[in-house]
Amino acid sequence: MFAEESPDWNPDDSSSIDCELCGEEPATMHLLRVVDGKVSHTHLCPRCAESVAEQTEGLALVLALPTVLRKGKNVPETTPYQPGQGRDQRFCAVCGTTASDLKESGLVGCPACYQTFREQLEAMVKRDVEAVEHLGKVPLRGPETDNLRHEMLRLERMLRELVAHERYEEAAGVRDRLAELGQRLQGSEK
């Protein structure tokens, strides 16, 4: 059996709200308290969340504010092109999802939407993580170029970490391998 999902947290239309306790810092934590089976929610800044957690008795559970799940309300208005129109007129040619559909529901309609709305989606999901890149399993039937790109993403991440740790000799090896894969990718895409 699976526990109930934490509720989507849509307090209002603004993209951020203040801590309910100190009223100064932005609320980034979602404190969920369960007492005798009854659930209550409080929205706090990290510092207040920590002090409340220490003082709380009984079953109190602290969950991180699911910012990326706050559907729609915080999809950034990225309208670099079509200046003067005021609204983002983009839509997915495959499924017909529009930029305002995405803003409203937080959901995309089909795999092609990930290309059409790439900037918005990256801005929606990325905010707290360094980069959007997949390091897990890849489909067995994917084209070879997918596997190459995936391997290159993995190596790029490794390269950044090696440079950060000043392990330059190993980094040079990874860089050479990246260059080699880059050429293969170019060759297979021609």
Binding site: L69, G106, V108, Y114, V125, H134, V138, P139, H150, L153
Partner: peptide, 20 residues
């Protein structure tokens, strides 16, 4: 045939769930 993008991973209607 799975919906997959090398950068995003396995795709889902909710972009927050795209990945593994």
């Amino acid at each position: 045939s799975y919906a997959f993008d090398p950068g995003w991973g396995y795709l889902s209607a909710n972009p927050a769930r795209a990945g593994t």
